[in-house]
Design a protein around this nucleic acid. Structure first.
Length: 808
RNA sequence: GGGCCCGUCGUCUAGCCUGGUUAGGACGCUGGCCUUACAAGCCAGAGGUCUUGGGUUCAAAUCCCAACGGGCCCA
């Protein structure tokens, strides 16, 4: 037994203040060592342990790790660490989505490398990418993120990954799902490339609604309203609603396009909104998706009026003008000739290039030869199969379903770019596709010869496809790549489908949908069993972070001050699926909680460190009480981890650890600790160790530090296993006693505050209350006296509990 | 135009599915207190017509309807 002085001296060995910036990098370095890798973080293909495979998002390599990244990094890391503690063999990958327009633009404009020099351009793209990865990776590591870098870090430009992408395309082609065809495509004139349906969205913009009088062939006129007067030259018909009395007698008649002097028919279609404009619209090729539907429905001719750079062609008088300029010019001309009836300024939704790009330019529809993957024919099957995945939160399943329901066009996968996965095909003038040999992958058709001399279908000469794949073609095979679908059947059988997919709401219709679709088509099953979809991290003002609003917060801004652990706790203190504002004040609060844990450990250290914590045959009633509470905490925490309800764990830390253990229990057992009471020492050691283990996935650094200082039997908390509480018997009378003690403590303290006494002052107490209440207190009278500096307690039965105190 | 989500102390939120203590916590605020871990602390306290209006019920923050406000997605 140590003397009081010795105990206090040993306590001084423990740094008084919790300093995350000293602790965290140390552990991050250790986790990355070969030794920790081998013992803890490695995914062992030969292990008999159950496998847990989490599919994490491969972020685009922008170079900046923003709060949204920090959020999923934290969730994924916490999930993986928990599963390790639970005894799983964890496959925890991290990929990089390396290809795409933003990188090309940086290389083109920031580095000034011309696209014409293809080799150099691609080399610089890769260099830029690696640079960006380096920055993001070090920030991830600084947050305590520890995936299987050694085995499962991947880059979508890498030959190994590219081989899987290309093979998946060739196999889809073999299944008859890929074809080249001509048709309208979403086109971004600014980026000069085709984009997919999932990359566009509607943005509210200021525009004009022009009312134009079309003369009727038989005399008179019909006034149409349009936001796209510049497309007048590509107008193929005028449409009205069949129910519209105003136009009933005009249906079937001919109208004449002003300026172009072309006759078009007036048709009736139920999709025309009677209340918009004049109720008469012009159908042009193409102003919006509705025009495409009408063009197909009525088999209207197509006039190509806009070129790849968004300039008008084929009109003579508007040629070479950009769409916006042409709009102004044609309105002027129409005014001069007296065709304009009215012009309104309106706010309307304009289809724009919104996804994965800050481009936001309006989308045009161009007629192009492109490569498509059939999606529409599989809608029915997709609507059935998606139900095999369970969603957290459940409502997110509805978002996927809604998206599948809304799919109208097949997936255009060709992009007119350089830095991307080459589509592994050659083609002929009849648009037949000839795939590369699987043995030749990865392949760049522009640099290799086709596997056959001529088109096997029609004998025409073959040309290489110069297009690259949509980035979602790349990232929709993460599960197939990681599980080893093509290249490691042993691993595939063990790991497929993945246990969890983690991602944000914003990529449901892209990453989630395409992975689900492609994996189902190629491997015949859904890619994962469970999809966990988190919300967005908002700025401190509760709105979306954006540079223009200046409400951007980066996790790295104040990580030295508060530490990665406190940031992780803040991010996890939200219900998964909800958006939440990020405030440094909240982080400060989490740091205080960790400081509390630090101090409690400081108190426990001299009594527990280096001691054997055998369970004594009998336990003090107060220890029995805390163990009963402890059992509840352990069980609920494990349950919360299983459901990814991290905020539940955090609220229990406040309630159980801070309020119950730190504020009540520790005070009650101090006198016994100093007297080397075996029951108290055993209990404190046990609950503290369990708390450390259970908190580790959320706050890995501080828990490793405390564990190593106090317990340290193993090199890492992760070599421990989840606590079991099977041996703890919960006795009702003990739990009730705990409540009585808490009540008594509170009454005594309240009275001391009222009487302006210091907490330290000696008092006499007269307590009243129901018989049961008094008996509970008598059971631990000695502990109450020592804890609350009471010299004498007298008891009196009464209905309501109350105390009277007086100075001793 | 359609769908989904959300409105709870000054701020962020738990509770709502499965109706039933005094609506719980964190940050902030007020007062007191250096107590064998912790003043980056402790103790105590103030602060809420649960957006509004109807309805169901013995009983509504919770279930239903409507309105208002905010957000997201789709057309």
């Amino acid at each position: 037994m140590l003397s009081q002085d010795e105990i206090l001296k040993r306590m001084e060995e423990w740094p008084k203040h919790y300093s995350p910036k000293d602790i965290e990098p140390k552990w991050q370095k250790l986790w990355l060592t070969q030794e920790y890798w081998e013992k803890i973080f490695k995914f062992d293909e030969n292990s008999e342990k159950p496998v847990f495979f989490i599919d994490t998002p491969p972020p685009f390599t922008s170079g900046e790790l923003h709060m949204g990244h920090a959020y999923w990094v934290t969730i994924a890391d916490a999930m993986a660490r928990f599963k390790k503690l639970q005894g799983y063999n964890v496959l925890f990958p991290q990929g990089w989505d390396t290809q795409g327009l933003p990188t090309e633009l940086k290389v083109q404009y920031k580095l000034g490398i011309p696209k014409e020099n293809r080799e150099l351009f691609l080399k610089k793209c890769v260099e830029w990418t690696e640079d960006m990865i380096g920055k993001m990776k070090s920030a991830m590591i600084r947050l305590g993120y520890r995936p299987n870098w050694e085995q499962f870090e991947y880059r979508t430009y890498h030959p190994n990954y590219r081989r899987v992408i290309q093979r998946s395309l060739i196999e889809m082609h073999q299944k008859g799902m890929i074809r080249m065809k001509q048709g309208p495509v979403y086109w971004c004139p600014k980026c000069e490339t085709a984009v997919a349906q999932s990359e566009v969205g509607y943005l509210e913009k200021q525009g004009i609604l022009v009312y134009i009088g079309f003369p009727l062939k038989e005399g008179g006129e019909i006034v149409i309203a349009t936001t796209r007067p510049e497309l007048l030259g590509a107008t193929q018909a005028v449409a009205v609603n069949p129910q519209d009395e105003r136009y009933k007698n005009l249906v079937g008649k001919k109208a004449i396009l002003p300026l172009f002097e072309k006759e078009v028919q007036i048709i009736a279609d139920p999709d025309v909104e009677k209340d918009f404009g004049t109720g008469a619209v012009m159908i042009s090729t193409y102003g919006d998706p509705q025009d495409i539907r009408w063009q197909l429905k009525y088999n209207l001719p197509v006039t190509e009026l806009v070129d790849e750079r968004g300039k008008i062609k084929g009109t003579g008088f508007l040629d070479g003008l950009k769409v916006e300029e042409a709009k102004k010019r044609i309105v002027e001309l129409l005014k001069e000739k007296g065709y304009v009836r009215k012009i309104e300024t309106i706010k309307h939704n304009v289809l724009s290039h919104t996804e994965r790009s800050d481009c936001l330019s309006p989308i045009e529809f161009l007629v192009k030869e492109q490569v498509y993957i059939d999606v529409v024919p599989y809608k029915g099957r997709l609507l059935e199969e998606y139900k095999k995945m369970n969603f957290k939160p459940q409502r997110m399943a509805g978002k996927l379903e809604e998206w599948i329901n809304n799919i109208e066009w097949d997936w255009n996968i060709s992009r007119q770019r350089l830095y991307g996965t080459p589509l592994p095909f050659w083609y002929c003038d009849n648009l037949h596709l000839v795939p590369a040999d699987i043995s030749s992958l990865p392949v760049d058709p522009t640099k290799s010869n086709p596997p056959v001399d001529k088109c096997p279908h029609c004998g025409l000469p073959l040309k290489p496809l110069t297009h690259v794949a949509d980035v979602w073609v790349d990232s929709s095979v993460t599960v197939l790549y990681l599980s080893g679908f093509y290249e490691n059947k042993l691993r595939f059988n063990k790991t497929f489908p993945a246990d969890v997919r983690l991602q944000g709401t914003d990529i449901i219709r892209t990453w989630l949908f395409y992975t689900f679709f492609r994996t189902l088509m190629l491997a015949g099953n859904v890619p994962f069993k469970r999809v966990v979809i988190h919300g967005q991290v908002l700025g401190p003002d509760g709105t979306r972070m954006s540079k223009s609003k200046g409400n951007n917060v980066s996790p790295m801004d104040r990580i030295e001050e508060f530490g990665a652990d406190a940031i992780r706790m803040t991010l996890l203190d939200a219900s998964i699926g909800d958006d939440f504002p990020f405030k440094w004040d909240t982080v400060k609060g989490k740091k205080l909680l960790l400081q509390k844990l630090w101090n409690a450990s400081r108190l426990a250290y001299p009594f527990i460190h280096g001691r054997k914590l055998d369970r004594p045959t009998t336990l003090h009633p107060i220890d029995q009480w805390i163990l009963a509470r402890h059992k509840e905490f352990v069980e609920k925490t494990i349950q919360a981890y299983e459901n990814q309800d991290f905020f539940v764990i955090l609220s229990m830390l406040y309630e159980y650890f801070w309020e119950t253990i730190a504020d009540e229990y520790l005070e009650l057992i101090k006198h016994r600790l100093f007297n080397d009471d075996k029951s108290a020492i055993y209990t404190l050691g046990r609950i503290l160790k369990d708390i450390i283990i259970l908190l580790h996935p959320i706050a890995p650094h501080i828990t490793e530090e405390i564990y190593s200082l106090i317990f340290g039997e193993k090199q890492s908390v992760l070599l421990e296993s989840l606590p079991s509480t099977d041996d703890i018997k919960v006795a009702e009378d003990v739990v009730r006693m705990g409540d009585s003690v808490k009540k008594f403590n509170s009454l005594v303290r309240t009275n001391k505050v009222k009487m302006r006494m210091s907490m330290n002052s000696q008092i006499k107490v007269e307590v009243q209350g129901p018989k049961q209440f008094l008996e509970d207190l008598m059971r631990v009278e000695d502990d109450l006296k020592k804890t609350l500096k009471i010299t004498e307690i007298t008891y009196r039965e009464a209905e309501q509990p109350d105390v009277k105190i007086s100075p001793a």
